[in-house]
Amino acid sequence: MAAPPNNSAASPPPGPALAGAGGPAASENGPALKKVWPANRWDPRVLILQCAVVAGLLLAWEAAVRSGFAPAYLYGQPSGIWLKAVNSIASGSLLRDSWVTFEESVAGFLIGGVLGTAAGLALWISPLAGKVARPIIVALNGVPKIALAPLIIIWFGIDIGSKIASAAILTFIVSLITAQSGTSRVDADLLTLMRSLGANRWQTFRKVVMPATVPWIMAGLRLNVGFALIGAVVGEYIAAKEGLGYLVYYAGTLYDLNSVWLGIFALMVMALVLDGAVTVLERTLRWE
């Protein structure tokens, strides 16, 4: 036995400071595991305050309209939005529009997220490809995606395909960039360690680079919730017969602001649902 904890603590002068050394001394006084507190303990006050803030804003809005301070035809009106919501839920049209946009966003989100992440990670495996791709990524990221609209319509038509494509393009680029940045920020000493253990590039990728990049990939997916909805809604603006983007756009041309707001609120609910799904995924993959 080479200096097991019990002997080693005996050789230097014993004292209270020794326990602070962590190491072997700490394991004598019971488990030295640090307590890790749950970061997000559920706190009912948060939910109550969130409801209060939303209710307060809606009430102020309603009051501003009723007092004549803000005309309803310019700003809409919460009570009017509520009536619209009740009607369009009853007729099924809100649910149908929401479902269409939901399908388009989720399909685009999955396609763009999977392909973008795979491409971003692949650029680590082949450093040459990474170097070749760098200016292309910058150009793709920088171009206003709306400029791609004519191509998307020509290639994917005016049905659901073009909306999925535009959501997929936006999310692809975000996932590509976040995954690639994640791989390039892996501690160089970790790569040195893996090489010193005799690991090849693929082993280093599987055991170090990929897990180390998970938080980056998740951050990209979180951003992509918004980008997938943007992609789908912009696609619906350009040409569509259904969907929340269509609802918002069409109602806007008619100055039906309550319907515009209804579409916006439905999109917000959808964003929260998708973000919740990403959080669940993040929990199952998290290691921090």
Binding site: M1, A2, P4, P5, A21, G22, G23, P24, A26, S27, P31, A32, L33, K34, V36, W287, E288
Partner: peptide, 23 residues
């Protein structure tokens, strides 16, 4: 076991002190 970390097999590095991590 021989180097005095028995019981810590399932611990994550973040739960260990600097000395234990280096061990």
């Amino acid at each position: 076991r021989s180097y005095g970390l028995a019981g810590f097999e399932a611990a994550k590095p973040s739960q260990l002190s600097g000395g234990m991590r280096q061990r």
